[in-house]
Write a protein that binds this DNA or RNA. Sequence first.
DNA 1: AGTAGCATTGTTATGTTGTCACGTTTCATA
DNA 2: TATGAAACGTGACAACATAACAATGCTACT
Lengths: 169, 169
Amino acid sequence: MAREPSKSNRSTAGDAAIRDDARVEHARAHCEARRLNFTPQRAAVYRTLLAFNSPVKAYDLLTRMQQDAPGMAPMTIYRALDFLIGAGLIHKIAATASFVPCAHEGAHAHGQVAFFVCQRCGAVDEVEAKDMIHALDRARPHGRGFAMQSIEVHGLCADCIAETSPAQR
Amino acid sequence: MAREPSKSNRSTAGDAAIRDDARVEHARAHCEARRLNFTPQRAAVYRTLLAFNSPVKAYDLLTRMQQDAPGMAPMTIYRALDFLIGAGLIHKIAATASFVPCAHEGAHAHGQVAFFVCQRCGAVDEVEAKDMIHALDRARPHGRGFAMQSIEVHGLCADCIAETSPAQR
DNA sequence: AGTAGCATTGTTATGTTGTCACGTTTCATA
DNA sequence: TATGAAACGTGACAACATAACAATGCTACT
């Protein structure tokens, strides 16, 4: 699943890098429009997160960034991640203590997004959740005043079900 | 987030202990019916978790249990918690890395429960979620084969909204 | 009774994730 | 240029979780 940074497949990797660069520029504009300070450090963390192309743990991000910036400390990563979450550019997945770029580049309201998290492989699928919110509100008998910010659905993705069921027979 | 509209807050620690004891016996029967080994150690961890009456972190549980059993190691706690989760007697709340007794004493199917988790105070409200599951299934455009096991809704509870909004005005 | 196999528990060490505290740098702007 | 807030560097540490292996005890079969 992980994309190797190998030198084969060069054109694909290059295309991905170009797409990531575009997303970084989009994020910069997003922050400028909100008077948020999209510093080089924050941009670098965001850029690195994009390159993984899958949910990333803070220390994996740190390890990767230390290749270019030896001595970088955990705090540096966590501060940048906090900023990016606040800006709506990334999300934290509690189930796996990992981070993913927002699939909508921050362009959704709070409480209108849901994550389907596979507990086996860690894959995350982010979907708009307006309809779900309504369904949840109706289905919930009490706790009326609860202000939803995100939903995590934990379970097994189709791929992992396919891989595990035969072994159990 | 009280589950029942109590007539008064006069319930004593003694009453609570008696209720907890009943729940431990219920859990014992639950396990025996499933040929699961509800050992004294596991019972003790469950009993201690019940006594907190709120979401508990593993190390808080450890600290408490070390009062009676000095030298108890983290492994011991985590093993018991794993067993209790497997037995359906408790749930893990990923958002706060904490554990709560199942509000239904294990009497619900997998994928039919949702947790409303307050990100400020950590309070957890567990509700049956059959209706939500259907709503989620309908609202979700892709990820057809996803097998839901639990839902965590993250946000702010009514109490915390009441406490924070005046300060923000 | 003997013993093989398994589940449970004990013990030590280690790995992983996240935060605190405090000092320094940067930079817009008054 | 002063100065104050935001951002950043750094080291220590707190909190959360598991690996690995030893010891114990149960139980099922001979």
